[in-house]
Design a protein around this nucleic acid. Sequence first.
DNA 1: CAAATAATCGAACAAACATTCCATATTGAC
DNA 2: GTCAATATGGAATGTTTGTTCGATTATTTG
Lengths: 286, 286
Amino acid sequence: MSDAEVAEDVPQDFDALKAAILERKASLPKRLKQVAAYALDHPDEIAFGTAASIAASAEVQPSTLVRFAQHFGFEGFSSLQQIFRARLRERAPAYEDRLKSLGDNDHSRLESGAILNGFVAAAHRSLDNVATSVDPEKFEAAADLLARAETIYLIARRRSYPLSSYMAYAFGKLKIRCQTVGTAAGIDEDLLSMASPRDAAFAVSFSPYATETVHQARLLATRGVPVVSLTDSAFSPLSESARFWFEIVEADHAGFRSLSASMAFAMALTVAVAERRRRLASQHME
Amino acid sequence: MSDAEVAEDVPQDFDALKAAILERKASLPKRLKQVAAYALDHPDEIAFGTAASIAASAEVQPSTLVRFAQHFGFEGFSSLQQIFRARLRERAPAYEDRLKSLGDNDHSRLESGAILNGFVAAAHRSLDNVATSVDPEKFEAAADLLARAETIYLIARRRSYPLSSYMAYAFGKLKIRCQTVGTAAGIDEDLLSMASPRDAAFAVSFSPYATETVHQARLLATRGVPVVSLTDSAFSPLSESARFWFEIVEADHAGFRSLSASMAFAMALTVAVAERRRRLASQHME
DNA sequence: CAAATAATCGAACAAACATTCCATATTGAC
DNA sequence: GTCAATATGGAATGTTTGTTCGATTATTTG
């Protein structure tokens, strides 16, 4: 056999390339795997950058990029880059009328796809709602209140529980003391008995309201513990006990509501509290 | 007046540049008008091509391109080209507009308001991503797989845990048997040992990947239990074990990611499974 | 119609580019 | 542990790049 290369199956579009990378990633040497991960995670950078700039970002040598391209059958880095550019070329016009395309894209042909589309659209609507319905001054004040707490008690159950568990995770990462209430049955009362007015609570409940959440929020409020709450209705019994309360109505799809907008709100509140607390700490030091 | 150039209003984004070109188009010399027309008609070419290749396509000299750029206040052709590249780079132009209108509402005056706006915008972008990146056929197939399971095992930890806890809540309401894994330490192994190929698992893990989740997904896969997984990178070790896997990249605000898009996806999958199961049941009865 | 001004061309240039090559380091087989 | 094979880093290389600049052509002005 001659040295002449028989036309290998060089990936001709981005999807084929992505598939090829994923297929061979396990058997790739260290640096090439590094490039592979970078390429799939930052495709735009590959499309626009120069070999030198991309190499610096991916923390490899430029020559490694060339080797990577050759590993996948390309002549050099430049020809691989064409794939990434073509991807951007083809995808760009889709943004022009994206909302239109959402209506008649592949998804709607399949029942499950229509369901996914429905929830995505509902989440969009819910998010728009958040931006307009949340009073920024109240938000600021709530963040300030929670930031001054020694321990933040997170009260939530059932449908609201994912929110509090995510906030607990984030608060933990941000080194802010918090305590979730509502997980294991029985010990809630003991936990809450430790709460003092120097602490604070964040209670979440959507209708139908979990009676324990309402009860516990009321209990804390009477004991002088400031409560911030999140509900989906101004008539929620939670609003009685709360110093500040927010109303977020999630749009529904076919009667089911996701937590997309509430999640964005919860995360924003969490970060706002952390930011506020950082500022309070620096003021104390001066 | 000195020769020193006072900072002209050099267009900083594509829309501004487009407006400037259209405004001055009439008073442009012949060749420069030629370039202007080509630039607006083939913006992608300008973004990706070299000065030489573009000049050839537009039937002008490369130096004309430089002069064109300088006429509009740019230092050279390269800096003008950046505008055309940025246009393709920007992920969510549709929401840029929406944000611009949000940008000068009450929220932005306050720091916490800006944080909330940021997370809402990030969630919008993430949702767009979901709609385009999830393959509807794969989604349908995954829903079908999970619908046929006797028990659905939900594997998630840390940042992913809120997703599985919400799905568990929803599955419970929909009377679909499921079992969350990863809550209490110790009993996970016992729970998973009961899983059979007639069951199925849904595993979620975002980087940094929890090793237990990866391990447990792999364990189930080797035992013949079909696994569907959700990750934020094609490089996730979870994708190896999964029959079907989905990649959802949450846009971040200031380095923090919310779960808005993943929540919408999780809810859509949950409802799709329920819908699928309802249909399977009615077929059996016929 | 002639002079003056502006626009264009195309060659020349230095900087940046992708690529190659080879010495060194790492990995895997025995 | 030793050796062979592969992978890597980094400098050298020849090419291509964007840009500049003087000569040439077109356009305007008196």
